[in-house]
């Protein structure tokens, strides 16, 4: 069973004196149980609206969503105790301390209040637990949001930009935390703009643009769809190397660091080596080009636009 399933989801918002704004336009999504699932897309692509539909905050205009097998929004209450979520910036009562906020949430959700201290310690807010939320930095509020999520001991975590406002050390802590949660068998559904972070911790991703899913699958698969057909070649005479490779049928372009980007199938590494050796050019480096998620994301979303 998938942790999250979305079929033909449409959501449009009515606007005064203007045509309706389409936020999600026929989205299909399957999030497998277990692991970290990255949910990517540029601003306004429909990520947060999709998350709000999943959590029953917004009613879809058309289509179906289910979370842990329960159709939302109608039956979301059946599984809400197993789903922890942060939607955009976590919000709490500013006049209450972090601990009191979590205490109230625990009481609302029927969760044991004895876990409050433990989750605050786990996200690094133990010392600031009794401070008013008003005095918290954005990063501390994010940590408090994560603590609220962990309070339920959830099977599924739906996190919308949980790393916003965190410093590098905080980013690493959150990354390690999410990875450890996934390793415990939980499903982490992570919407983020920090593509390097996503690439580091996600097992699968979906990329949205204009309310539609334009790529979905395990991270390596998504990267290979767009990458894996180029090499980085470094040699002493880079201009000569370029012309030798061109004669052998391998088009290339200069990179900034005295190396070449050579287009060729993964199996053509030997042929490239031979072509250069035949021209008495002996390469110092040959490696498959690594495609970053960021590059794929920009390429895909750029195409869409």
């Amino acid at each position: 069973m998938n942790a999250i399933e979305v079929r033909e989801l449409h959501k449009s918002y009515r606007r005064r004196l203007r045509s309706a704004k389409v936020a999600v336009d026929g989205l299909d999504l399957e999030v497998p149980t277990g692991g970290v699932f990255g949910f990517l897309g540029p601003n306004g692509s429909g990520k947060t609206t999709t998350i709000r539909c999943l959590l029953g905050l917004v009613r879809p205009s058309a289509g179906e969503c289910s979370v842990l097998g329960a159709p939302t929004p109608n039956d979301f209450s059946e599984v809400v105790g197993r789903v922890g979520s942060i939607v955009e910036t976590p919000t709490f009562f500013a006049g209450f301390s972090g601990k009191r906020n979590l205490d109230l949430l625990a009481q609302i959700g029927g969760v044991s209040r004895s876990n409050v201290d433990a989750v605050l310690e786990r996200v690094g807010l133990g010392e600031a637990a009794d401070d008013r939320v008003r005095t918290y930095s954005l990063g501390m509020k994010q940590r408090l949001g994560l603590a609220a999520v962990l309070l339920k001991d959830p099977e599924l975590l739906v996190l919308d930009e949980p790393a916003n406002g965190l410093d590098p050390a905080g980013l690493k802590e959150v990354r390690d935390l999410l990875r450890s949660l996934a390793d415990e068998g939980r499903t982490v559904f992570l919407s983020s703009h920090l593509l390097n972070e996503v690439q580091m911790i996600c097992d699968s991703v979906a990329i949205l643009a204009h309310g539609r899913c334009i790529a979905q699958g395990p991270v390596q698969e998504v990267l290979h769809v767009r990458g894996g057909n180029a090499f980085v070649v470094r040699a002493p005479k880079v201009r000569d190397a370029k012309s030798a490779l061109a004669k052998a049928g391998f088009p290339s372009t200069f990179r900034g660091d005295q190396s070449l980007r050579v287009i060729g199938a993964p199996a053509s590494a030997g042929a490239i080596t031979k072509a250069l050796a035949d021209a008495h050019i002996y390469l110092t480096e040959l490696r498959p080009e690594e495609i970053s998620l960021e590059a794929v994301f920009l390429e895909l979303t750029g195409e869409e636009q």
Binding site: L55, G56, L57, P73, F76, S77, V80, V83, S85, V87, E88, T89, P90, T91, F92, F93, A94, L105, I108, G109, A148
Partner: peptide
């Protein structure tokens, strides 16, 4: 005003 209603509804959607 604080947006806490969103948080509340993710704990009790009814």
């Amino acid at each position: 005003g604080t947006g806490m209603m969103t948080t509340t509804l993710t704990w009790e959607p009814r």
